[in-house]
Design a binder for these strands. Structure first.
Lengths: 342, 342
DNA sequence: AATCAATTTCAAAGCGCTTTGGATAGCGCA
DNA sequence: TGCGCTATCCAAAGCGCTTTGAAATTGATT
């Protein structure tokens, strides 16, 4: 059933039917009701491509997911992020189109998306220091919103980020307050913007108390479970091992914990852990008592909100770009305790 | 730059340019080369909506992701699955469109997808016993392929599944061979097809050796870490606790392990665990030595392959529907050992 | 030189929608 | 009665592509 047939059935013109369906005022309320009813009965839905052709908009938002070439890994926060974003999209009549791309090849994907008119805007995931995708998107004129920020990029753009620096500063302070001095930082890849900021927060806190930073206690890689495990095993072998670990993700923290327990140590007593918690639905931080002391910020909320911001920006490209900074909560769980006197 | 402009630039008709670009034979190779060059230089890409309107195809595949209303949880295997599928799509010029839907509301989403012509086919995730989505999709005439199967559904359809029954039968046999008799089953939700089959495999193996099945040792829920933890804590309190756990996912197995270690037991010595491993990129089962003894099957491979099957089916709807059954490997890791004599 | 077939190109219709620019009818008012 | 308004509806153009059916060109054949 298409518009033409529907209009013929009703003995009306396509124009009138289209207008009625799209809520324009210049149609008699009685006929509008008649049209709505008929559309309902025939289960009519406008063809999205035809509509898009006519309006010049696709009513779709693109997500370009970078896949690390090293581990062929997709960031596990991703499913929760799009669950949030998807909510916003369906509420606003947008589709979500996804491209998974080996990182490096992204430029062509964005150009395609724009040139072929597949989407009205994109969400940029996994921003890096001086991310070149931002000037690229500005250049090709594709509206975008960034999940995170790109340090070093001047000029306004639409973003939503967690305050990673203050979160990790507070987490470090918390550990310092407990008497820890040998605090390891198990970070994400340090060309990723969030990892840089977290490191910054850690360094700030350490410097503020004049605690020396030992480069051997800082690791940085893709945030897998195995990475947490291997790094921890390694550091615990040191002559002067860390008494606390500051970890960039729950999954990595699980690996840290595995290493700790394998070494016969007890988490929260012998060794403390603080991790960042994105509140992933399948990996809740315990039930009522949190397993890990954590800096917490829901990535699903971020998805929901950032999608709203992008839609706003798409609908009104001339308005100044919005941005938002979520503050992470510091949740105290069972994984931290005062440093053990030797 | 659109077709018309490109054709004018070249002094040719739209027809010829279109044909040249789409590889039709009735165009002089010299002019084709000229056209290809010009298209390249002007960075021309056909508008996808116009093309879709003209051809009646959208060159997009839909994924409808059910989100559990209970935990607002998206299955964590999902990101790896689409990473695999996405590879196939980009190789074949398809887009991927995603809808995250609270389960229950899916029928309307499928109808929309079909009526609005957003996609040429869909991948059906998380099939259940007697899944009504299959007759629905047949009814509305939207080509589909199922990740998994739907027990109880008669009639052919396109699917790809892991042999869950044989995998869990072998895993159970393996534990029985080690002398375990009190084997707990920590399963996914048992209206999910895969969970039914896994339970079937477990029961088969137990019955084949006339080992009684204790219903108190069988749990079934969404496969979170916390679920694994809570179930295990609970069962270890029994007067006659299990000596082995058969677990439906790595994440849940992490929870099982947490409970075991918290109880002061050693995994692989005091208590054994076998889990299913979907080979998620961020949650590899150890580096060289597997952490868990596991039934292993890559969900990313499944995504890659199922997408191919669906595209084949979309291109030739009259061909008989394909199906494929992956056999899981049984990987022996450090989480299993002979039962401890008390 | 005339004919025919194969090769190469083109004009125009059509895909299903929105939207512009009228047309028509009904109304109050002078 | 006739005018100007408003309310309501419509015909047709246009979005950017593919594809049908026909025309023009070429080369070979007689």
């Amino acid at each position: 059933m298409n518009l033409k047939q529907l209009a013929q059935n009703l003995g009306l013109s396509q124009t009138t039917v289209s207008r009625a369906l799209n809520g324009y005022p210049e149609v008699n309320e009685a006929t509008r009701a008649r049209i709505l009813l008929a559309a309902e009965q025939h289960n009519y839905r406008p063809n999205i491509r035809a509509k898009g052709l006519a309006t010049g908009r696709s009513m779709a938002i693109g997500h370009v997911i970078p896949m690390s070439t090293k581990h062929e890994m997709v960031n596990p926060i991703f499913s929760d992020f799009i669950a949030g974003a998807g909510e916003t999209y369906s509420r606003n009549g947008y589709d979500m189109v996804l491209s998974v791309v080996e990182d490096g090849n992204e430029a062509q994907v964005y150009r395609n998306l724009k040139a072929r008119g597949s989407v009205d805007g994109v969400i940029l995931h996994g921003p890096r220091m001086d991310d070149m995708r931002i000037p690229l998107l500005n250049d090709i004129g594709l509206p975008f919103a960034v999940h995170g920020r790109a340090s070093g990029h001047k000029g306004p753009y639409c973003w939503l980020d967690v305050n990673n620096r203050s979160a990790f500063r507070r987490a470090t302070d918390f550990l310092l307050d407990l008497g820890h001095r040998r605090i390891a930082l198990i970070n994400g890849l340090e060309f990723m913007d969030f990892a840089i900021r977290r490191r910054g927060g850690y360094e700030d806190a350490m410097a503020a108390r004049a605690v020396p930073i030992d480069p051997r206690l800082m690791r940085s890689d893709e945030m897998t479970e195995v990475f947490g495990y291997v790094s921890t095993v390694d550091m615990l072998r040191e002559t002067n091992p860390p008494t606390a670990f500051l970890v960039a993700s729950m999954i990595t923290a699980l690996g840290v914990r595995r290493a700790i327990e394998e070494a016969g140590l007890v988490m929260g007593r012998d060794v403390s852990i603080v991790t960042h918690d994105d509140v992933l639905s399948y990996l809740r931080n315990g039930d009522d008592v949190p397993i890990f002391t954590a800096t917490r910020s829901s990535v699903r909320d971020a998805g929901r909100r950032l999608a709203e911001m992008l839609i706003g920006h798409v609908n009104d490209p001339d308005s100044p770009p919005q941005s938002e900074l979520f503050e992470a909560e510091l949740i105290v769980g069972g994984s931290t305790g005062p440093v053990r006197r030797v």
